[in-house]
């Protein structure tokens, strides 16, 4: 297993990325010198305390925001702006409220000029994959929070990107729906393997999902520690090893006030 992982190539290579925000009151360094490699088809979780620069980190890694310094390469190509070779799942779901589920999922292929029959077929495949068959014509506000996030995942997948970035996608869900969605995202990922960079503040969620956890510090955010997670899937939240690791990471994580 480990051997195989070393063999697989790095999809994301981030070198020395920092991000500073400047406003009237001065400048704030939000992330500082992050170096990170993510391998093909790896499920990587970025975990950090409350208000640390997790979101900024994933925004910069995905090209949603430019880095102040440093470079991010995806498949060897330097990233400077958003692009359809990357998928993004937002915490706020960011669905287009005026489009149906189908309209949302096929949005990417549509704006890229893919013809209707082809993009419909593709969208239908991913709608089925996330378990929303029968809801193609519903509007987002007719769906529950968990279902909305399924749409977000299908939409990101539908462009068939190389990498998927997910910024705390289950943050607004209740604990039980969250467990369901964690099982679901693993099922989806195992069916349609992609490289996933998943941001969360929930250590339990990270241990359940990840091949590797990268623990971030408080701002200015740096990498504090990495954990390789080798527990077989499906994982058990109450397994003693699982709980022990959860405690270890909890203690290691920077404190928030």
């Amino acid at each position: 297993m480990d051997e195989a992982r070393h063999m697989s190539k790095s999809i994301i290579v981030a070198q020395g990325i920092s991000k500073t925000f400047t406003n009237k009151r001065g400048s704030t360094k939000v992330i500082e010198n992050i170096n990170l490699e993510v391998r093909e088809n790896e499920f990587l979780c970025l975990v950090g305390p409350g208000q640390c620069g997790k979101t900024t980190a994933v925004n910069v890694l995905s090209g949603l925001e430019p880095a102040s310094t440093g470079t991010v390469k995806i498949n060897g190509k330097t990233i400077t702006r958003p692009g359809p070779d990357r998928g993004f799942v937002f915490q706020s779901t960011a669905l287009y409220p005026w489009l149906t589920v189908m309209g949302n999922v096929e949005y990417g292929p549509k704006v890229r000029g893919i013809k209707k029959s082809e993009r419909r077929e593709k969208a239908q495949y991913y709608i089925n994959l996330v378990g929303l068959e029968g809801f193609e014509h519903s509007y987002p506000n007719q769906l529950s929070g968990g279902m909305q996030q399924r749409v977000g995942i299908a939409r990101a997948y539908c462009n068939e990107p190389v990498v998927l970035f997910m910024d705390q996608p289950f943050g607004a869900l209740d604990a039980q729906t969250r467990y369901l969605m964690q099982e679901e995202i693993i099922r989806i990922w195992e069916t349609a393997k992609r490289t996933i960079v998943f941001v969360t503040n929930n250590i339990e969620e990270a241990i359940y999902l990840a091949d590797r956890i990268v623990l971030l510090t408080n701002t200015p955010t740096q990498i504090k520690k990495e954990y390789k997670i080798d527990f077989p899937r499906p994982r058990d939240y109450t397994d003693p090893d699982f709980l022990a690791l959860r405690e270890e990471i909890t203690n290691e994580m920077d404190k928030t006030l």
Binding site: P49, G50, G171, A172, D174, A175, N201, N202, I203, E204, R246, T250, M253, K255, T256
Partner: peptide
């Protein structure tokens, strides 16, 4: 009514 629903684990503890 679920006052700690959205908090990090460490903070929730």
């Amino acid at each position: 009514d679920e006052p700690y629903g959205q908090l990090d684990i460490e903070l929730r503890f």
